[in-house]
Design a protein around this nucleic acid. Structure first.
Lengths: 247, 247
DNA sequence: ACAAAAGTGTTCCTCTTACACCCATGA
DNA sequence: TCATGGGTGTAAGAGGAACACTTTTGT
């Protein structure tokens, strides 16, 4: 044995992104604590300790199901946060009481998830005492959760360029404008609507439906669906390609 | 306590990439084992258990210094491998004996590193009993190390498109052809040399030096250096940009 | 009739692509 | 002098950027 080595507790923390048609949102929960003074005070990302015989993706899925009631949601691992001081002594003590884990450190693994933020979801999460906040309005979270969030957003941005995951944040049927708003929100850019439509339709990524928006006090927009066939054959034969050619 | 939760041992495994002017290579080591029958049999990625008061990046750096003798090398975390069955019982037993860690599972974190593969490096690693193998020629590694390697390569490919890390695989002064070969090797594509030069020089990413290749039996190529100033101001004002516009 | 967002084309210009020959060196 | 890879330009076509008005609905 060449040095002191240790076992660590491992947790997952999930950055759950949603989109309300206007802004990119993240689901936050209140910290559970024995001390009622802290109750309902500090916001954090939903997370959990991993269990025996559970992989990290499984733990993340469990957290997600607990927060949103949904299974089989898109989940992607981001970064591990392993600073030995990231969880301080008093928190370790609380973990010992609450989880029955006695350890000198907790390493956490970041995940992000993409969910469709419909009214049912909003109701469900409200009953859980969780809140959806605009990404831009989140400035403080407990421990290093702000770092985990920032990191997840960066990873999400890159991932959206390489795979058609943006659609996981939209309803099954959506308008072109919703997609544009989403991309503008995620990247913090402005997109020319006419050129965007041209590229988008040329890419063949959208399927037209027969439906239109209802009950809007302006010309109703057509609803589209993702055309999954557009990704059947990966064209990375001798050429690199952005999936998101529509930027 | 709502369920059984555990502490785990955490290790890091490093995919150390090098480039010999022709092929992308990875540094592999022999498995250390108590059983002499296994000695010198099975290849693996260099790795180590994390120590107390050590972050994961620090552990990875330690592994890297051990394998290559170098400090301050570019290191990037890739993915965590957490399958409870990834390290089997006999291996856990060996870990207990060798490391003094008694645990039911070992979670490992993948890292990749980019090194300049000069003669000094080759000599050093040879003395360590490590081998540089072409990425394309590696088909079997112990445990799930093959997965860790494949994953690292995928991540490297994307990263190269977003930041000027490709140059970390080249000598300080290099020829255009070396850079082209590197990109062709990493992505498995062919690049038109004339168009490549045009874009490359237009991008301002290269600084010309006064030197040329020596002792080559053809017209000697000019040597260039990376122009770090080309990245001073991030142009992500309202536009997404590939750093690697030269693909 | 008015407000509000949907939907649509053209021009200009830049960037990409395809492609073949002379040059400098060591052997 | 020959073999080897280094280094250079152009023309044609595709794709990107900029830009303003008409349409459809609810109120």
């Amino acid at each position: 044995m060449d040095n002191v080595q240790i076992n660590s507790a491992i947790s997952v923390d999930c950055v759950i992104f949603g989109f309300d048609g206007e802004n990119l949102k993240v689901l936050l929960v209140r910290r559970r604590t024995a001390d009622p003074l802290y109750h309902d005070k500090e916001l954090k990302l939903p997370g959990a300790m991993i269990r025996e015989n559970e992989t990290l993706p499984e733990a993340a899925e469990r957290v997600l199901e607990g927060s949103t009631g949904l299974k089989g949601i898109y989940l992607k691992q981001t970064t591990i946060f392993s600073d030995p001081g990231r969880v301080d002594e008093s928190e370790l003590e609380w973990i010992g009481q609450y989880h029955g884990i006695h350890t000198v450190r907790v390493v956490t693994v970041g995940y992000y998830a993409l969910v469709k933020l419909d009214q049912g979801m909003i109701n469900y999460t409200r009953r859980q005492g969780a809140v959806w906040k605009n990404v831009d309005d989140i400035h403080h979270l407990i421990m290093d959760h702000m770092d985990i969030l920032s990191d997840a957003l960066t990873v999400l941005q890159k991932d959206i360029l390489w795979s058609p995951i943006a659609f996981k944040l939209l309803p099954k049927k959506f308008t072109v404008r919703q997609l544009q708003n989403l991309l503008e929100a995620v990247f913090g850019i402005e997109i020319d609507n006419r050129n965007f439509r041209k590229k988008l339709f040329a890419s063949g990524i959208l399927m037209e439906t027969e439906e239109t928006e209802k009950h809007v006090s302006h010309k109703p927009a057509k609803l589209y669906m993702l055309n999954r066939n557009a990704f059947g054959k990966k064209d990375i034969t001798n050429k690199l390609q952005f999936v998101a050619s529509w930027l």
